[in-house]
Nucleic acid binder design. Sequence first.
RNA 1: GCGCCGGUCGGAUAGCGGCUAUUCCAGGAGACUGUAAAUCUCCGGCCUUCGGGCAUCGUUGGUUCGAGUCCAACCCGGCGCA
Length: 306
Amino acid sequence: MQKLLVILGPTASGKSTLAVELAKKLNGLHAQACEVISADSRQVYKGLDIGTGKITQKEMDGVVHHMLDVENPKNRFDITKYQKLAKQKIEEILSRGHLPIICGGTGFYISSIVNNLSFPPVPPNKKLREKLSKYSTETLFEKLEKLDPVRASSIDSKNKIRLIRALEIIQSIGKVPQNSNTECLSFDTLQIGIETSPEKLKENINKRLISRIKVGMIEEAEKLHNPPTGKGLSWKRMEELGLEYRYLAYYLQKKITKEEMITKLQTEIWHYAKRQMTWFKKDKRIKWFKIEEKDDIILLCKRAIS
RNA sequence: GCGCCGGUCGGAUAGCGGCUAUUCCAGGAGACUGUAAAUCUCCGGCCUUCGGGCAUCGUUGGUUCGAGUCCAACCCGGCGCA
């Protein structure tokens, strides 16, 4: 079975740097070279660079990266697009005789590859979503209970987004299919998790935020909203992108001060990191290492790919 | 020193004398199959056999069947006047 390496961890844990280092160390071992596939739901967008902490050409240091800048931020990217594109990239990498390294913090995206998730073939129906979003969560849940009691029994009854999605599937194919991930996995995967103490992680988050501002994150957001040519991102869309872009949008609209933006972002990014950890903790296959334990990581990877 | 205002969870805040002391934030735990940096849920004084039990609104007294709420004194903070 084809080998696949995954580097994951919460935001600001040092994944990207590690992935490059690892790629270089592993080059030439049972693979001519390694190529990195990003698994980040925001770095897929063009122009979201500083705010997402997208790796620069220089930092890539010659290691090929994929799944960055593959979508216009005006459009909504989603997991099926990710899965399709990423799988394609993996195939290409393998056909070159190279080793794919998935690196990122979007657990759901990683899972779509690693667990070979299959999604119901129902594309988003914008009109229906708009219509349904006018109803209250209670009403939506009642509808779902009537149409698909099985899905209703397990769904998060207060989560509007999920309720609407479930109803969307029902409208198209009658029922929400049970998840069927029993089919065999496509890859022989080693998942490496970077674990960081809460104190260290908070420190990293705060430092990184300040330095992002220094290197022009605010200007980046301004430019996204108001580019030199053409129409920019609406504030609404920018807020939807979350974290940095959301609070940057608030700040640029003068809804909050710069100080409020910074303090708020520090806690919001921390909350995000915790949510990521909640997700990752469930997967017992992940091997956890501290970022300092590079040699152990390299050793384990070498053994895994040989 | 006098006058006024205020003291309720880590912070902020609600609370006509009556039922289970409210909400927000921070903090903690968790969910997640086409928005996932999104979205959503739970916990939150102590004890618990998970049914509940015992507390608690600066302190001490008092009024009252009943006090976070009324009264008095004291303590603390803010403002004003000296």
